[in-house]
Amino acid sequence: MITEEIRQEIQKRLKKYANEKSAVMDALRIVQRAGGGNITKADMEEIARIVGVNPVAVNAVAAFYTMYNYGKPVGRYHIQVCRNISCALLDAERIIEHLEKRLKMRTGETTRDSRFTLSTVECLGSCGTAPMMQINDDYYENLTPERVDEILDGLE
């Protein structure tokens, strides 16, 4: 659902650009955030109306960029563990295994209570403090299984 407040927020973003179409990315992000991490088909149609583009153009963008969760709803805490080279060299695998065990789920899944989604992702630009993960907006670095437990305990 796109509220009046969100609509106004999107309309503000249109002014950043010479061509309003540019605001599709901002609009999707704003709507996803307001929707608790998810985007629906109805949202995209509404975005298309506000920005003034064809819904297909909005769908194309939502499907291309990995941070849009269209068609793959995520839980309240989206845990994303880096699996790229710098983290892998410092045993990111161990962190992923630990998370799977602790949350009793496999990578790519969401817990039944929709509390956690566990994903692996490519480099998040935090390689000097590997291994690392991101939970929603925040980075957690220099991870060990013990540190992961502390972080999750802090969330629960």
């Binding site: 650009y17 990315m25 992000r29 849009y68």
Partner: peptide
């Protein structure tokens, strides 16, 4: 302008496409 998770947008012309909302 915030990217949304696409390495390719570091390539300069892909970056421009992305700012154009594509």
């Amino acid at each position: 302008h915030k990217g949304m998770g696409a390495y390719i947008c570091g390539e300069e012309t892909a970056l421009l496409e992305s700012i154009e909302g594509l």
